[in-house]
């Protein structure tokens, strides 16, 4: 069964971009690791890492599988179907399968020579259920050599320069946060839902007061957008703030998209004020998807 265009969505995380069926949910999101579920069962896991020096498939496979709770002895060689191989010409690849008491599956170890990144893909279940694999492999991209990388997970996505490094993330029901560092700045992306309930008894500026703590309200286009700024100008105070490891310049913007019942936000902290245009671009490149 082939799934139509609308039934797939893009997922971008830590430099990897792929397309997955709409029904899949990211069940575990860690640095360099994604696990997807379909109807409450694991269906696909991806783990990737940078390789230093030469690539030894067997050694790499042992290392990656052990880190995923398997031993190399559980694995059997697997002949990758021709239809899958068509999409793997940019990778060095090796297939394996496993079967234990309660689970079975197929795995692919891929290595991108250009980016020196290895990727372990695991499909859980029986091969006959892997109709999605061809399309998934066709859409698999390593974004490391691009200027920008797309971060896209759940219902939010952001386009960031490749230099941006994710430092922390938190996905709680109704409240998402992803932190990045970029050119000496700390960026925090927020997403809150359901906006209608969160703003039922308070204005957007009241809702964002904790996020913007210590900053002054600079712009309030209620109920759609509010913005705060903080800039310590006095040299003595700047020094004091830096000694306290606090940022001397903070910009915060929260905006609501009523038709999607969502509040998005961006906070930029640093010791130099970020250029207005740059901040604007970062906000524009953060959207729902």
């Amino acid at each position: 069964m082939q799934l139509s265009e609308q039934q797939w969505r893009r997922i971008g995380w830590d430099g990897i971009l792929l397309q997955v069926p709409q029904d899949w949910h990211p069940a575990a999101i860690f640095p360099n690791y994604l696990l997807f579920e379909d109807r409450h069962r694991p269906i696909c896991a991806l783990k990737w890492q940078q390789i230093k020096g030469s690539f030894d498939a067997e050694k790499m496979l042992n290392k990656l599988t052990t880190s995923l709770g398997r031993t190399a002895s559980e694995l059997q060689p697997y002949a990758i179907p021709q239809s899958w191989r068509l999409h793997l010409d940019r990778f060095v690849h090796q297939g394996f399968s496993w079967q234990d008491s309660d689970q079975s599956g197929i795995g692919l170890l891929l290595f991108n020579r250009d980016t020196q990144r290895s990727l372990l893909l695991q499909f859980y279940g029986q091969e006959k259920h892997f109709a999605f694999a061809q399309r998934l492999l066709a859409g698999l991209q390593d974004q490391q050599q691009q200027e920008h990388q797309l971060w896209s997970v759940f219902d939010i996505c952001m386009d960031l320069p490749i230099e941006a490094k994710r430092t922390e993330h938190e996905f709680l029901p109704g409240s998402f946060r992803i932190h990045f560092t970029l050119a000496g700045y700390r960026l925090t992306y927020y997403r809150f839902k359901p906006a209608a309930e969160l703003l039922r008894r308070q204005a957007l500026s009241d809702f964002g007061r904790d996020i913007a703590k210590g900053s002054t309200l600079e712009r309030a286009d209620e109920p759609l957008m509010v913005q705060w700024q903080r800039q310590v100008k006095h040299p003595g105070l700047r020094l004091l703030e830096r000694l306290r490891k606090k940022s001397t310049c903070v910009s915060v913007r929260l905006w609501q998209i009523p038709e999607e019942n969502i509040i998005l936000g961006l906070k930029v902290e640093g010791n130099l004020k970020m250029q207005e245009q740059h901040f604007e671009t970062l906000c524009q490149r953060y959207r729902t998807c």
């Binding site: 069940a27 575990a28 696990l35 579920e37 109807r39 409450h40 069962r41 694991p42 896991a45 995923l68 709770g69 398997r70 234990d100 309660d102 689970q103 859980y124």
Partner: peptide, 17 residues
């Protein structure tokens, strides 16, 4: 025993039902 991803799947499905 080593836990593999999603081992708690059927329990969650049961709880949701």
């Amino acid at each position: 025993t080593r836990r593999h991803p999603g081992e708690s799947g059927p329990d969650r499905q049961y709880a949701l039902a």
